[in-house]
Amino acid sequence: MSSLSYAAPTSVDDAVKLLAGSSGLAKVLSGGTDLLVQLRSGRVKPELIVDTKKIPGIIGIREENGGFVIGAGTPGAVVEAHAGLTAAWPGLVEALDLIGSTQIQGRCSLAGNLCNGSPAADSVPALFAANAIAVVVGSKGRREIPVEQIPTGPGRTSLAKDEFILEFKLPPRPARSSDAYLRFIPRTEMDIAVVGCGVSLTLDAKGVCTAARVALGAVAPTVIMVPAAAAALIGHTLDADTLAKLDAAAQAAAKPISDKRGTIEYRTKIAGVLARRTAAIAFDRAAGIKNGKAH
């Protein structure tokens, strides 16, 4: 039988060396909430597991240059408890918070959710909408790339074998900016998103949208940005006409598949519904109107 080894390096260099030196498949272990399921089912058969959680800085949140830096392995529960981050990026925090149960929240991380490569990953549309930057480390050094460039297809990423994400950088927020994330699931908890939608935007003093980013999950092989949906918002308040255009843009961008979680027809319609509802929450938040969490 194949043997599986485990290492918990305490520095980036050691981790990179382990990944680079592995002759077979090496998997980075962050919260493990996807990896352990794949191990148990036999879907992945690595020869090495590199647990990155002991690397300094990989867990934790800090403010830097007016923005936030989130350690790649920071568990959802820690992110959710961070008041400053929650105030600035409520949509991203609630997106991460929607992954799985309380138990999953004790372990799941942004990096794991992103690098698992699921198009339905809850935190990823919010990360995309936030224009987050991933700090990637590997044998060739350190590089900073937009998160949009990480997933390349279901279960696949652009990271090299010896690379992993160390942290995420969120840009400083202009005034009257906020974000939101909604997903649709059949139950109230525990399901994988049938469709997910992240919206991040900035309003001017009159409530007109001056900047927007809209991302959709579970409607394509990866989470996608929907520039046409953002264009429908920019220069407008959230009136009926804007909402209709946003809905249409989201539906037009959605190219889902039919599977056990939803049909093409249903997912396409829900993409439009969620785009409207998510944008409405983001508008309210940016305008300073308080509202509750997505659930």
Binding site: T188, M190, D191, K260, R261
Partner: peptide, 16 residues
């Protein structure tokens, strides 16, 4: 069977 697990065979959870 495509949904042979509690993730996609959706029994009610406490919040349902």
């Amino acid at each position: 069977m495509e949904n042979a697990g509690f993730l996609d065979y959706r029994v009610p959870v406490a919040s349902d």
